[in-house]
Design a protein around this nucleic acid. Structure first.
Length: 842
RNA sequence: GCCGGGGUGGCGGAACGGUAGACGCAGCGGACUCAAAAUCCGCCGAUGGCGACAUCGUGGGGGUUCGAGUCCCCCCCCCGGCACCA
């Protein structure tokens, strides 16, 4: 302890976190400490956390997300940046409707009440948000601009309506975008198995940006590699050749797509998806019996479960149509099948079957006894025997049975044969993507209405921009039967055509809420304007988001959509940047008892209770200390207590030494004027702490190790005893560095203690401490002596000894000499300030 | 199957190719107390030894190196993503 019995012996105050936290939250708010404007001398920094859905209460994932964000925002302000750190609510969505059905509350009331509650909770966390900039996507002054942006995309041809087989979730009562179907065909929200339905829906042309979305992933070195890989997988680019086969005896052509044009000489069949348009043609051309067989088969396949049909290892089923296709390269006639494993969704909905070199085609050919022709052999082996093959040979190899291409390795054959095809006009090189257009319609009430009117004479007519927002009527009742009351409301549906004035009908679907969250980060830059969704001067100043923080679950949802929006808005001239988020941090989950916290497992810990019991500072400290941010975090009540204990020790460290601290000059003592070891050690510790904490936060984003260093500093300060004024000056320097560096983690406690030691300026707006390089000078080091790399002795030696000097001094030591007695020393390795390793033989 | 990320004390987790286990939690011993809580001090990878010490130890097996948790090769296990995508 610095002082056992504090001077004056006055009764000291206990760490009353509730009082302190309330006091400083009020102070920050009343003084407008965290309000920021664009411009000024400081470089800008935009720190953003994924905004929450207003479910009613914060959960641990939020607590973690926002603790990390607030740490970054506060740290960077102290480092000299002009930090934009806003918060809002992703407020449209299904839970509000479910609550309406269950509790008889209107979704709007339910949502607004939850926003109030959660805003309150966020304020109790002590986060440094500029609350003036709050946005809620369900409010007309926000969705007005969501609708406006939709119309801009519509005008640009990026929003369109068409009929397509789409994903339908029975439980949610709406369609879903492809990204929202996970785990082999389940709804991302409720895990219900989705169905395919043929519906006319609104889409956004995200596929226009597929190539750029893929390419510019390389321009995002600040993103975790795994997120970029997930997006790359999702976009699923593949290069190949589109080629057509003639339908024998007709003028019809069958378009196929292949990435393995090098296997063209091995084609032994052609297969069509059951939904392929050519199937209709075949029905016309076929004999009545054949037509019946085809019709029956197609019916069966079309009714097969979508998931089952696209699952690996699913039973392949096909039917020979009785027709033949003609191969363009050699005029061979091969049978045409309809097969359940061919997807109309991908490529052309028809394939060339090469069983020798494709696993799926192989399985199919064996089942239906189709010929197999190997055209590639392994580089180091013979041509596979068609009769005895038991798996397809799908690797690279050497061409054979391929005419003029025989002997070429795959890597060469592929481009050459593609060129050959193009030259002869048989096919065209083509790039295919797995990414599909974004289905944005939702058959739900609680969302932003799609601002389109359908007129018998004029067709689709956009609602005029000056009439926006097209407000969602709040006087409709949401219940189980009328899932989307807009469809039953004449006052909503019946309108007049904006173009011709005749009676017309409104669109009753609303927008996917991911649309709302695809541009909210832009609104934060211009939250007050009613002229535009955002002002270019603001977005030019603030964008891109320098640090974005959120859960990995949005790797291919929100994060892909927001990238698409940013690019589209840039092309429309509204934005300069083409990528919204420069650096991305994906935090791990909060785990308890080895499993994700969930109601069904009953292992949920409510942040509210933790904050009430221990305070926000303790909750934040624990969550930042228990694990590095990207890893999952194991919740431990004992760990929370440990964090609380640490804060009480910091409190006492200041409180019990208050007289000494305030009775001394606020003037750091330079290292040069310190001679005593204890003083030099403490001075060094203080500056080493600044150095490593800064590095851990700024470069490594390892907040847990930063805290470990701060705990060490606190321990060192506790162990230091002050005898004279020089000691107190040093001690005070240490305490202030501790408070400054700890403040982004536990801001309330640090503000309070900062004030106690005599500062009148708010700590949140103080400057981050600077490292004094002269204080980092190391006097003595521990050098180890090793025998064949094994640790034998330790020595405390002056730092900076030369290689030779070090070796000499260590080898001269009595214990070392005794150890080496009679041994044959082959080699000595000396590393200054580290070790001396002796290689002995025998 | 393909692509990522992991595997270190009882637990969460640290370690520029150079003292493995920082920091914390739990545990053990002690101080203070009538007692408890709180707090403080000490110990805390395993095995053997009273001890100084010794041996082993970062999923398993090889290798490179004076020296490997860290680099290379092979294998096992866990987590995540994609997957009948032509």
């Amino acid at each position: 302890m610095a002082v056992l019995f504090p001077r004056g012996g006055a009764r000291r105050m206990a760490y009353d976190f509730a009082r302190i936290e309330e006091k400083w939250q009020r102070f920050w708010e009343e003084e407008g400490v965290f309000q920021v404007e664009s411009g000024g001398d400081r470089p800008k920094f935009y720190c953003l956390e994924m905004f929450p859905y207003p479910s009613g209460a914060l959960h641990m994932g939020h607590l973690r997300n926002y603790s990390i964000g607030d740490l970054v925002a506060r740290f960077l302000w102290m480092k000299g940046f002009n930090v934009l750190h806003p918060m809002g609510f992703d407020a449209f969505g299904l839970p509000a409707e479910n609550a309406a059905i269950k509790y008889g509350v209107h979704p709007n009331d339910w949502t607004l009440r939850n926003i109030d509650q959660m805003t309150n909770q966020l304020k109790h966390m002590g986060c440094s948000y500029d609350w003036r900039r709050l946005v809620a996507t369900c409010k007309p002054d926000y969705y007005r601009w969501t609708q406006w942006l939709f119309l801009q995309l519509y005008k640009a041809g990026l929003a369109y309506r068409r009929q397509a087989p789409v994903n339908w979730c029975d439980s949610c009562g709406t369609v879903l975008a492809n990204e929202q179907v996970i785990d082999g065909g389940h709804c991302w929200r409720c895990a219900t198995a989705v169905k395919k339905k043929n519906l006319t829906q609104w889409f956004l042309k995200i596929t226009d940006y597929a190539q750029e979305l893929l390419d510019s992933l390389d321009d995002l070195p600040g993103w975790p590699e795994r997120v970029r890989i997930m997006q790359r997988n999702w976009i699923g680019r593949s290069e190949g050749v589109r080629l057509s086969f003639d339908l024998d005896g007709t003028e019809e052509k069958i378009e196929t797509f292949t990435t393995r044009i090098d296997t063209i000489f091995g084609v032994t069949f052609v297969a069509l998806a059951a939904e392929h348009p050519l199937v209709e043609k075949l029905l016309e051309l076929a004999s009545p019996d054949q037509a019946r067989a085809i019709g029956d088969f197609v019916d069966v396949v079309r009714h097969q479960d979508a998931i089952e049909r696209t699952a690996v290892g699913g039973e392949k089923e096909g039917l020979f149509t009785g027709f033949f296709a003609v191969s363009p390269v050699d005029g061979r006639k091969v049978p045409i099948y309809i097969a359940n494993y061919i997807l109309m969704d991908y490529g052309t909905g028809a394939i060339m079957g090469v069983p020798a070199h494709d696993e799926r085609d192989f399985e199919f050919a064996r089942k239906y006894d189709i010929e197999i022709i190997p055209v590639i052999r392994p580089a180091d082996g013979p041509v596979p025997e068609a009769k005895t093959m038991d798996v397809a040979f799908s690797e690279d190899g050497i061409q054979c049975n391929s005419g003029e291409f025989d002997g070429l390795p795959t890597a060469e054959a592929l481009p050459r044969m593609a060129r050959w095809f193009e030259e002869r006009g048989w096919g065209k090189r083509e790039v295919n993507f797995r990414l599909r257009d974004w289905l944005l319609s939702r058959q739900r009430y609680w969302g932003a209405p799609i601002p389109i009117v359908y007129c018998d004479d004029c067709g689709m007519v956009p609602v005029p921009e000056e009439e926006l927002p097209l407000e969602l009527p709040l006087d409709l009742k949401v219940d189980e039967e009328t899932r989307n009351p807009l469809t039953k409301s004449d006052s909503w549906r019946k309108t007049t055509c904006p173009r011709c004035g005749k009676p017309a009908l409104r669109e009753t679907d609303t927008m996917d809420t991911f649309i709302c969250s695809s541009w909210y980060f832009l609104r934060f830059a211009s939250p007050f304007t009613d002229e535009a969704p955002f002002l270019k001067e603001d977005s030019d100043y603030w964008m891109a988001v320098d640090q974005y923080i959120g859960g990995i679950e949005h790797a291919v949802l929100h994060l892909m959509y927001a990238r698409f929006f940013t690019k589209a808005l840039a092309d429309l001239g509204f934005l300069t940047v083409r990528e919204p988020f420069t650096n991305l941090l994906t935090q791990g989950m909060v785990i308890k008892d080895g499993a994700k916290m969930s109601k069904s497992l009953g292992n949920v810990v409510d942040p509210k209770e933790i904050i009430e019991k221990y305070g926000a500072d303790t909750a934040r400290l624990f969550i930042l200390f228990a694990s590095p941010p990207e890893k999952d975090l194991d919740w431990s009540e004992q760990g929370v207590e440990g964090s609380h204990r640490f804060l009480r020790r910091v409190w006492r460290l200041v409180e019990e030494n208050l007289d000494g601290l305030t009775g001394t000059a606020l003037e750091p003592v330079p290292m040069e004027s310190l001679e005593k070891k204890e003083r030099r050690d403490l001075k060094r510790k203080i500056h080493e702490t600044i150095q490593s904490v800064t590095h851990d936060i700024e470069v490594e984003r390892q907040f847990n190790t930063a805290l470990a260093r701060l705990m060490e500093l606190a321990n060192a300060l506790s162990a230091f005893s002050c005898a004279d004024d020089l000691d107190w000056r040093l001690f005070r320097e240490g305490v202030e560095v501790l408070l400054l560096c700890l403040s982004p983690f536990t801001p309330h406690l640090c503000e309070e203690l900062w004030q106690k030691v005599g500062h009148s300026q708010c700590l949140a707006r103080a400057a981050w401490p600077e490292v004094d390089p002269s204080a980092l000078v190391v006097d003595r080091v521990t050098v180890v002596f090793q025998e064949n790399g094994k640790l034998r002795e330790r020595f405390d030696l002056p730092a900076g000894l030369s290689r030779e000097e070090l070796q000499e001094r260590v080898l001269a030591d009595e214990k070392v000499r005794a150890r080496l007695e009679g041994k044959n020393v082959v080699k000595v390795i000396a590393v200054p300030d580290k070790l001396v390793n002796v290689v002995v033989k025998g």
